[in-house]
Amino acid sequence: MPGWTLVEGRAVALPIENIDTDQLIPARFMSTQRAEGYGRFLLHDLARGADGTPDPAFPLNRPESAGAKILVTRRNFGAGSSREAAVYALVDAGFRVVIAPSFGDIFSSNAINNGLLPARLSPEETERLIRLCPTTLRADLESLTLRAGEETLSFELDPVWREKLMKGWDDVDLTLAHGEAIAGFADARRAARPWTWPG
């Protein structure tokens, strides 16, 4: 997965609270091979009518949402089950950043491991961005800022998560980055307690 420091592109608003992972991708689509792409399943049951046709009133179905890279939404985004496929659906649909006042904890961790930034802003700041959408927005991991026109907002991000996004790492890559220290620890333990190691 490629790392990144800057994403600039169209930001669109999904002004709905409590979008959970079951809504992000309904379970019946999760048997699809990842290689086939999950983007077409994103928010399927919210975005389509009972007959399966796209609802033109749904925010992400509007023409101005085409090609969006940044989603601005409301609190408790990604709550619910731990399905990583919810993040796959967002990434496969082209999103690199989701902005909200709060996120599901497991969703946030899954997002980072798949190169998707969950940027937390206050409810008031989020609402200001929602009112600006659709707009061009710049997300900068170096400065930890979001910029839309004259509006510049700062967000906080765990330093380890920031490093993982910038280097394109998941949890395995993060562990491997400490391979020399791990090997040194193992060698020292083997020397100090040889009887605890297999022959």
Score class of each variant (00 low, 15 high):
residue 148 A to Q: 04
residue 124 E to H: 14
residue 88 Y to N: 03
residue 117 L to I: 00
residue 149 G to N: 09
residue 161 W to P: 02
residue 148 A to H: 03
residue 159 P to F: 12
residue 131 R to T: 11
residue 134 P to S: 09
residue 106 I to Y: 05
residue 89 A to L: 02
residue 87 V to Q: 00
residue 143 S to L: 14
residue 147 R to A: 09
residue 160 V to C: 07
residue 95 F to H: 02
residue 134 P to G: 10
residue 123 P to G: 10
residue 124 E to Y: 11
residue 123 P to L: 11
residue 106 I to D: 03
residue 105 D to W: 12
residue 148 A to R: 03
residue 116 L to R: 06
residue 153 L to E: 02
residue 115 G to C: 09
residue 116 L to A: 10
residue 137 L to W: 01
residue 153 L to M: 13
residue 133 C to T: 03
residue 161 W to L: 09
residue 113 N to H: 11
residue 86 A to I: 04
residue 138 R to K: 15
residue 103 F to H: 05
residue 102 S to G: 12
residue 82 S to W: 10
residue 131 R to P: 01
residue 94 G to F: 07
residue 126 T to Q: 06
residue 146 L to M: 04
residue 101 P to H: 08
residue 161 W to F: 15
residue 129 L to P: 07
residue 95 F to I: 01
residue 161 W to Q: 15
residue 93 A to L: 09
residue 158 D to L: 11
residue 131 R to Y: 03
residue 149 G to I: 09
residue 142 E to A: 14
residue 146 L to K: 04
residue 94 G to C: 06
residue 103 F to W: 03
residue 169 W to C: 03
residue 87 V to L: 00
residue 150 E to M: 09
residue 153 L to Q: 08
residue 141 L to W: 11
residue 92 D to N: 08
residue 160 V to G: 06
residue 95 F to E: 03
residue 113 N to C: 12
residue 126 T to S: 12
residue 92 D to I: 07
residue 122 S to D: 07
residue 88 Y to S: 04
residue 123 P to C: 07
residue 149 G to H: 10
residue 162 R to E: 03
residue 121 L to Q: 03
residue 111 A to L: 08
residue 112 I to H: 08
residue 134 P to L: 08
residue 148 A to W: 02
residue 141 L to S: 09
residue 100 A to L: 04
residue 91 V to Y: 02
residue 134 P to D: 09
residue 129 L to N: 10
residue 134 P to I: 09
residue 154 S to W: 12
residue 136 T to F: 12
residue 96 R to Q: 15
residue 118 P to D: 08
residue 88 Y to D: 15
residue 108 S to W: 11
residue 138 R to W: 11
residue 105 D to M: 12
residue 145 T to Y: 08
residue 125 E to Y: 07
residue 119 A to V: 06
residue 98 V to Y: 05
residue 119 A to T: 08
residue 118 P to N: 10
residue 95 F to S: 00
residue 111 A to E: 01
residue 83 R to W: 10
residue 120 R to I: 13
residue 144 L to I: 01
residue 137 L to N: 02
residue 147 R to F: 00
residue 115 G to Y: 09
residue 158 D to R: 12
residue 112 I to E: 06
residue 154 S to H: 15
residue 112 I to M: 10
residue 169 W to Y: 11
residue 88 Y to T: 00
residue 139 A to C: 03
residue 91 V to W: 01
residue 109 S to K: 13
residue 169 W to P: 08
